[in-house]
């Protein structure tokens, strides 16, 4: 297998691989740096593809199946690219008892996707979070990295439509913005 005995080359010319390499170097290319390295890839490229997992395995001398086992064990790692916009519904206890389940259902129904999926046009990814720690503002969502406090199904859909640039149905009906 090429690249097993010598130092493997990054999967592409992309300069961003230097960031990943720096992470591995800082950890002395030790096998225990696996999670740190995967974090670095995910942070840099948004997700872990097969080539990046192979590169990690070869660089840190970790079995392929172990890399895959670790990458799929932790919910934070994504093996597929995410949509242009990301909607995270917090499913922490406070949010749940204040109706986070309905929020999730609303988005699932509106866009025909389930939590963890991305719309076919790649516009929106819907994710569930265990608890984003904004329990005082329940129910909360995170839209493209910004926490939205005290969300209702109506204003959530409206905001999503703002994000994707589509006019919101509610707006057309003259409903006021939150």
């Amino acid at each position: 297998m090429p690249g097993l005995l010598s130092k493997p080359a990054p999967p592409s010319e992309d300069k961003r691989w230097r960031i990943v390499e720096a992470t591995m170097r800082r950890n002395g290319y030790a096998p225990h740096a696996l999670i740190e390295t995967l974090h670095s890839i995910q942070e840099t490229f948004g997700y872990l593809d097969e080539a990046s997992m192979r590169y990690t395995a070869a660089s840190l001398r970790v079995p392929l199946s172990k890399v895959y086992g670790v990458a799929t064990f932790y919910h934070f790692f994504a093996l597929k690219p995410q949509g242009k916009h990301v909607c995270v519904v917090c499913m922490g206890t406070s949010c749940y008892i204040k109706g986070a389940g309905t929020l999730l259902e609303t988005v699932e129904k509106e866009y025909g996707i389930r939590a963890g999926e991305t719309t076919p046009d790649g516009e929106i990814s819907l994710l569930k979070a265990r608890c984003i720690g904004s329990c005082g503002l329940a129910p909360a969502c995170v839209l493209d990295g910004v926490v939205a406090p005290k969300v209702t199904p109506e204003n959530l859909l409206e905001r999503l439509k703002e994000l994707t640039g589509q006019p919101a149905a509610a707006q057309k009906n003259g409903a006021s913005k939150p």
């Binding site: 097969e50 997992m53 192979r54 079995p63 392929l64 199946s65 172990k66 890399v67 895959y68 086992g69 799929t72 064990f73």
Partner: peptide, 21 residues
């Protein structure tokens, strides 16, 4: 010594897999 197999996923979704699945 090949470590071809490992477990992927977790909980009730866990499966044994070869290499990168």
């Amino acid at each position: 010594g090949a470590h071809t197999w490992d477990v992927m996923g977790r909980g009730i979704e866990a499966r044994v897999v070869t290499d990168l699945g």
